[in-house]
């Protein structure tokens, strides 16, 4: 298969879709599962903020004099594709497991691009790192919710 060049623009577009998809996913969780509604709504709001952070950082930092012809060599976006649709029949525990999987994959993606963007202006990988940290915190929270759900009668 022909290798596709992944430019900074392509990464930002991917992130916009990822965070939009994550936001919609958690809004759906909040809609369906009342017990931790506030937590899921907070995650949805945070995804919107993540998107703003990354896009704003990129738009305020990118300069035609330093990033032209840059590409994320070797990055396979297909490997980082993440499912963010919650099927109708998905139960609470299953949804939590799906959310944890989503966060793990997102984390892996952000770690990957943080590493590969080190030669860009430093504010860009730093923004990616901030999002990685937030989503990791989310994963831990979801894990604790899942533990409680499994232990409950």
């Amino acid at each position: 298969m022909e290798k596709t060049t992944i430019t900074a623009s392509a990464i930002i577009s991917f992130i916009e879709k990822l965070e939009d998809g994550s936001s919609a996913f958690y809004e759906e969780m909040a809609e369906r599962f009342a017990e931790n509604r506030e937590t899921f709504l907070a995650f949805a709001k945070e995804s919107k903020k993540n998107k703003t952070l990354v896009v704003r950082t990129y738009q305020e930092t990118i300069t035609d004099a330093l990033e032209a012809c840059f590409s994320f060599e070797g990055l396979d976006l297909g490997r980082h594709a993440i499912e963010t649709t919650l099927a109708k029949e998905t139960g609470y525990t299953e949804a939590l497991e799906m959310a944890i999987g989503l966060e793990e994959k997102a984390n892996e993606f952000y770690l990957d691009i943080t590493e590969r963007s080190q030669s860009l202006l430093a504010t860009i990988p730093r923004a990616f790192k901030r999002v990685t940290k937030k989503r990791n915190g989310r994963r831990l929270k979801l894990q604790s919710l899942l533990d409680v759900a499994i232990d409950s009668p």
Binding site: S9, E60, I62, T63, D64, A65, E67, F70
Partner: peptide
């Protein structure tokens, strides 16, 4: 990307 850089 070049255009966005120029806009900035």
């Amino acid at each position: 990307d070049e255009s966005r850089g120029e806009t900035r």
